[in-house]
Simulated scan of single mutants.
Amino acid sequence: MRKFVFTAGIILIFFAVLYAFLPLGTDKKVYKVGVLQFTSNNLTTLEGFKDGLSELGYREGEDIIYDFDGPASAKEDLVPYMQKLLDGQPDLIFVSPTPAATVAKQMTAGTNIPVIFAPVNDPVASGILKNMRTPEENITGVRLSSSDGRRLQYLKDVVPSVKRVFVPYSPDDKSAQTSLKMLEEAAPKVGVQLVKKPFFRDTDVLDDRSYVPVDVDAVLLPREGLVMSRIKDFVTLCIDRKLPLSTVRFKQVAQGALTGYGFNGYDIGKQSARQAHMIFSGSSISMLPVEVSEDYLFINLKTAKDINVKISDAILRQAHNIVR
């Protein structure tokens, strides 16, 4: 018994001495990721980002931790949210969409903190980047393809009777301005007229029934956070008035919009996770060009039935996702 205790004591002393002389640098790196989001539209994007990193071997709570207090509901909240993230000394900041990316760029300027955006409508037009092939400074990510004109065409293909399309937009949102430019270029070719109207934080499309004119044939939401954050209200209004509603996100078609042509936020999150992994592996931002998201056609057949719209089989065969 004494021999056993003596031997065990020697072993414990050996490992204690070994541990004491191990170099401090051998501690496993735990990455800290700050998350800045404007509105709750992109929560599924964050989910995809986390799952993508998990699949790449980063276990939450062990290899990686996320600093996220929830999305900012107002643009003026983005700066204090961002400052809190910076105070936490993150290894990387994940941001979405354009307003959050703009604030992150401004507040990390001159630092070596990498920033990944997912998604941004047009990073050059919004002033976030000058060169998407070899991003300067500390920011890269995933942008949306320039497909709002194609989405307008699909709206017309899904409901050929559409002639006047209502487009609410935030006047000071650069992403909204990019969407409007694409839509304005496409409208004459598609054969529709755009009816544009400013949208603000206090706009209530359900209380103000006159906000959406009675003589429009459809509603199309541009790619911007504020307007898309009211998707439930627009779905309620459009179903009540039997109006086709077009959006850019599959999630919002699943929530009741009739159709959409655009991106799957979860997939974009996983796409950006690969960029984060490359940064953690030692790649510099300039080695990571901005990637472009893939676009798909989405259709909600339940909503089509609710608003009395018959969609042709030819169109249904083109859809990537059909909600039944």
Rank of each mutant, 00 (worst) to 15 (best):
M1P: 13
M1R: 13
R2Q: 14
T7L: 15
A8T: 15
A8D: 11
F14C: 12
F15W: 12
V17F: 13
P23D: 10
L24S: 12
K32C: 01
G34N: 08
N42Q: 15
N42A: 07
T45M: 11
E47R: 12
E47H: 09
G48K: 04
G52Y: 05
S54F: 12
S54G: 09
E55Q: 14
L56H: 02
G57F: 09
Y58E: 08
Y58K: 04
E62F: 13
I64M: 11
I65G: 01
I65W: 03
F68Q: 10
F68T: 09
D69K: 13
P71Y: 09
P71H: 05
A72H: 06
L78H: 09
P80C: 02
G88A: 15
D91P: 13
I93T: 07
P97F: 10
P97M: 02
P99C: 00
A101L: 07
T102K: 15
Q106R: 13
Q106C: 00
A109T: 14
I113A: 01
I113P: 08
I113K: 04
V115D: 05
F117G: 06
N121C: 06
V124I: 15
A125N: 07
K130G: 15
K130C: 00
P135H: 01
N138D: 09
G141W: 08
R143E: 13
S146I: 10
V159Q: 00
P160I: 06
K163L: 14
R164G: 01
P168R: 00
P168N: 01
S170N: 10
D172W: 10
S175W: 03
L180M: 11
M182D: 11
L183K: 00
E185G: 06
K189L: 14
V192F: 11
L194E: 07
V195P: 09
F200H: 14
R201Q: 13
D204A: 03
V205K: 03
V205N: 04
L206G: 05
L206P: 06
R209H: 05
V212C: 07
V216F: 11
D217K: 02
V219G: 00
V219Y: 06
V219K: 03
L220S: 03
R223H: 08
G225H: 07
R230Q: 12
K232H: 14
D233R: 02
V235H: 05
L237Q: 08
R241C: 00
K242P: 10
P244D: 03
S246Q: 04
V248T: 12
V248W: 14
R249V: 14
K251P: 03
K251C: 00
Q252P: 02
Q255R: 09
L258M: 05
T259S: 14
G260C: 06
Y261P: 03
Y261Q: 00
G262Y: 06
N264Y: 14
N264D: 15
G265Y: 06
Y266H: 12
D267C: 00
K270E: 10
K270Q: 11
S272I: 13
Q275C: 02
A276H: 09
H277R: 12
F280M: 12
F280T: 08
F280P: 13
I285T: 08
L288S: 02
P289I: 05
V290K: 05
E291S: 12
L297I: 10
F298L: 01
A304W: 10
K305Y: 01
D306K: 11
V309S: 01
K310Y: 12
I315Q: 02
I315R: 02
L316R: 13
L316K: 15
V323Q: 13
